[in-house]
Design a protein around this nucleic acid. Structure first.
Length: 610
RNA sequence: GGGGGCGUAGCGAAGCUGGUUAUCGCGCCGGCCUGUCAAGCCGGAGAUCGCGGGUUCAAUCCCCGUCGCUCCCGCCA
């Protein structure tokens, strides 16, 4: 009994017609004389009725049905009387009166119930992923992901981009994340690497004249997983020639505008807010701030001098020493910092709640978090009380007005000899407050560009400069002359796209000048011979008329995750790995036969047990 | 490498300061029921309290170890 229609198709207009449905028993309600089966497939759910006047044979089959049996039903479409219409169901105006039911396959007792949102533990959901994927939630998210991918291709191709595939067996290149390696059978001791991204290939495609390239590309990084990170993930990889930064940003704004409109019906602003990296860190304490709420951090240093708070004074004084030391290395963005966050109307926070906020700061290396409450004296004048207020008695009025605080507000303070730590730690507090206070509506989408990232970062462990992004990033023009003498001050032509506190895309304008590339290699201590060996093909390609170019790579998993209102990309990946990079369903990774190892010229050295 | 949390029936949870028969909801099995749509009502089965050891008259509960999962820090150009 092959289906004539799917389970979401029938409407009142079909009343009187015969139809055959195939699907799974979603629910069953047996009333003795009459019974109902909700039959489900990918398209919807249709109510099947076995009427009281049905044959005994039909009733006997209906009685056998259990959850998730795969069945075929033939019957007549009947319009439901008004009182029996189910307005919550897409097909709620009709039902199929069964004349024949065939059990295609039976289903054993389920390990968990298949509902809209399964409440089973993730471990179990992943082990029985084929069942979990039947749930309404997973079905919706897989559809959304499909729709997003389609909308991406639709837009990119309409804008003149070519989708070009690049290899997944590539040469291992230095820096960045650990590579997943594939041993070579034909060349003992040699390996392919799986790409961390198609970076080098897309740049070479620019040299080849494909001036608008994109690819929905699988990427692999052998690093520990997180809610928003999997060992394998998907990027919308994009590269363009003869463009400047703003061309890339505008192109992405167009793409996302189309994707959100087409798939969610959500209109995005034509242009996204822009923040410099320094602003993002100073105002929001993060390079991926959640802008669904404002609550900016403020500089508290001006109020420290007149106060009697020695801990804060020390932080700034030690920070001064830190700054001088950093300046000797060329780093200008160093020194101590004291940052304040005014939380409107939260002077009623309990000690416990404040302690929890402090704990959030401490995760990011803050030594502690001070706090004060703003109250009003009998004359109605704002005053400070509680916590660290006694240290600021002398300049309380000044401080309150300077911070723009009002009676009833809570003031949170973090100080550190490293300004970056003060910023990031208080930023974590801001972020926690946003969640606690219900400012993080998953249906609100606040995009922002973070631009002007530092080009180089000082590597404390190896006592050398590293590139903050990657070695092919174009240093902004105005720094080219001073780049070698003062790497710390150089800004790269780098940009991140941030959405609701997640880094959604990262990109840059690339170096197309071999001489400039050599200078960057030199600054990060990348030996020319080594560079030649690892990237020779790229530098060689660039000798043949490389165009100026740049690109970006939005993460598809994170995008769909945020669009679906989820907080883990596992929810939008059909078969994800768990947090230990294992697939519980098929038990991958697994051991292989000795024969396979022999063919690959491999022997295993197991770690010694402690 | 480090930190927080979790592990009790098929699933999700409760179990106070250690005390006799380990509780609840869903699911499952049986029965009743002619309009439900998370159907309802009655009855029933189902637990090595992750595993190992210790303390104790007595351990799901306390201690040590171990395994698994989860979130986070580090890491992720």
């Amino acid at each position: 009994m092959k289906r004539s229609v799917h389970c979401g198709a029938l409407t009142k207009a079909d009343a009187g017609k015969t139809a055959t449905l195939n699907g799974w028993v979603h629910r069953k309600r047996d009333h003795g004389g009459i019974s109902f089966v909700n039959l489900r497939d990918r398209y919807g759910i249709t109510q099947v009725v076995v009427d009281s006047d049905a044959s005994d044979a039909l009733k006997a089959i209906a009685a056998e049905l259990k959850h998730e049996f795969c069945i075929a039903v033939e019957g007549t479409v009947r319009a439901r009387p008004d009182s029996m219409v189910n307005a919550d169901m897409a097909t709620g105006a009709i039902e199929l009166v069964a004349s024949r039911i065939e059990i295609l396959t039976r289903c054993e007792l389920l390990p968990f119930q298949i509902d809209q949102e399964s409440d089973a533990k993730e471990e179990l959901r992943l082990k029985y992923r084929y069942l979990d994927l039947r749930s309404g939630g997973m079905q919706y998210r897989m559809k959304l992901r499909n729709d997003v991918s389609f909308a991406v291709r639709e837009w990119m191709i309409s804008q003149g981009f070519y989708e070009i595939e690049t290899p997944t067996f590539i040469k291992s290149t230095p820096e960045g994340a650990r590579d997943y390696l594939v041993p070579s059978r034909l060349y003992p001791g040699k390996f392919y690497a799986l790409p961390q991204s198609p970076q080098l290939y897309k740049q070479i495609l620019m040299v080849s004249g494909f001036d608008k390239y994109f690819q929905i590309a699988r990427c692999y990084r052998d690093e520990d997983a997180r809610g928003d990170r999997q060992p394998e993930f998907t990027q919308i990889d994009i590269e363009m020639s003869f463009v400047e930064r703003d061309d890339v940003l505008a192109m992405i704004e167009g793409l996302f505008g189309h994707v959100f409109k087409k798939t969610l019906g959500v209109s995005l602003p034509a242009q996204f807010k822009r923040l410099s990296y320094d602003e993002a860190l100073e105002l929001y304490g993060s390079d991926k701030p959640d802008l669904r709420f404002d609550m900016r951090m403020q500089d508290f240093a001006p109020y420290v001098e007149q106060s009697s708070f020695q801990a804060f004074k020390d932080a700034l004084a030690n920070g001064e020493a830190e700054r001088r030391e950093a300046a000797a290395k060329g780093v200008t963005q160093a020194g101590g910092g004291v940052k304040a966050l005014v939380v409107p109307g939260k002077a009623d926070y309990s000690r416990k709640q404040i302690d929890e906020l402090e704990a959030a700061a401490k995760i990011y290396k803050a030594k502690g978090m001070a706090w004060m409450k703003v109250a009003a004296d009998p004359a109605g004048k704002p005053v400070l009380e509680g916590g660290a207020s006694k240290f600021f008695a002398d300049n309380a009025a000044d401080l309150i007005s300077g911070l723009g605080a009002k009676p009833g507000d809570l003031i949170l303070l973090v100080a550190d000899a490293k300004r970056r730590i003060a910023n990031i730690a208080l930023g974590a507090v801001r972020s926690k407050l946003g969640k606690d206070l219900g400012f993080c509506d998953p249906k609100v989408f606040k995009f922002a560009w973070i631009v002007d990232f530092p080009m180089f970062e000082w590597n404390e462990d190896e006592n050398k400069w590293d590139t903050a992004h990657h070695m092919f990033t174009w240093p902004q023009e105005q720094y080219h002359a001073t780049m070698e003498s003062d790497p710390g001050s150089v800004k790269g032509d780098l940009y991140d796209l941030v959405l609701n506190g997640f880094e959604l895309a990262s990109g840059s304008i690339r170096i197309h000048d071999p001489d400039l590339q050599k200078k960057v290699f030199k600054i990060v201590g990348f030996d020319p011979a080594e560079a030649e060996k690892k990237f020779g093909f790229l530098t060689e390609a660039f000798k043949y008329g490389a165009p100026p170019h740049g690109g970006i790579a939005p993460g598809l998993d994170r995008l769909v995750m945020l669009m679906a209102g989820e907080t883990s990309i596992k929810e939008v990946i059909a078969f994800p790995k768990n947090s230990f990079a294992v697939s519980p369903m098929d038990e991958c990774p697994n051991e292989v036969d000795q024969k396979q190892l022999d063919e690959l010229h491999l022997s295993i050295r197991y770690p010694e047990k402690p």
